[in-house]
Computed example of a mutant assay.
Amino acid sequence: MTHVAAEKQKLLNRLKRLRGQIDALERAVEADVECARVLQQATACRGALEGFIVEVIEDHIREHMVDPALPSADPRAQAAEELVAILRSYLR
């Protein structure tokens, strides 16, 4: 994953938050917290993981699929940005 080196700390921070959410979810299950609260926490964990996935895919698209030297008006650059926008709306 060398293509995400510049974003490495941001991704690591996301994973640390996700780990904290999963730990909280585990504690909730162990403590027999009501189902609705457990499901709410599980949904938050899923959202955090999907956010992480979107970031990695977005970095991959921008690093490997589009030449960074292309002007933003180039159709390929525009198509890549449209794809990123679709991913963000679908996975978040």
Rank of each mutant, 00 (worst) to 15 (best):
M1E: 08
H3E: 11
H3G: 09
H3R: 06
V4D: 02
V4G: 07
V4Y: 11
A5W: 04
A5V: 13
A6W: 05
A6P: 06
A6K: 15
E7G: 06
Q9T: 13
K10S: 14
K10H: 12
L11C: 01
L12D: 07
R14E: 00
R14G: 04
K16T: 05
R17E: 10
R17D: 05
R17Y: 09
L18E: 00
L18Y: 04
G20W: 02
Q21N: 02
Q21I: 00
Q21Y: 03
D23L: 13
D23S: 11
A24L: 03
L25Y: 01
E26P: 03
R27H: 10
R27V: 05
A28W: 01
V29H: 02
V29N: 04
V29G: 03
A31C: 08
D32C: 10
V33L: 06
V33D: 06
E34L: 10
E34S: 09
E34Y: 10
C35T: 13
C35S: 11
A36F: 10
R37E: 15
L39K: 08
L39Y: 03
L39N: 10
Q40A: 15
Q41F: 02
Q41T: 08
A42L: 13
T43R: 15
T43Y: 07
T43M: 12
T43E: 12
A44D: 04
A44I: 01
C45H: 03
C45P: 02
R46T: 08
R46H: 07
R46S: 07
G47F: 02
A48E: 02
A48Q: 02
L49D: 04
L49I: 08
E50Y: 10
G51A: 07
F52T: 07
V56C: 03
V56T: 00
I57C: 08
I57D: 04
I57N: 02
D59C: 14
D59V: 11
H60F: 14
H60R: 11
I61M: 08
I61Q: 03
E63F: 09
H64D: 05
M65N: 09
V66F: 05
V66E: 00
P68A: 07
A69Q: 12
L70S: 02
P71T: 11
A73T: 14
A73Y: 10
A73F: 09
D74T: 02
P75E: 08
P75R: 06
R76Y: 08
A77P: 00
A77D: 03
A77S: 11
A77G: 04
Q78Y: 06
Q78T: 10
Q78A: 15
A79V: 01
E81A: 14
E81S: 11
E82M: 09
L83E: 09
L83H: 05
A85F: 06
A85Q: 14
L87C: 06
L87F: 09
S89N: 12
Y90V: 09
Y90G: 04
Y90P: 03
R92G: 15
R92D: 07
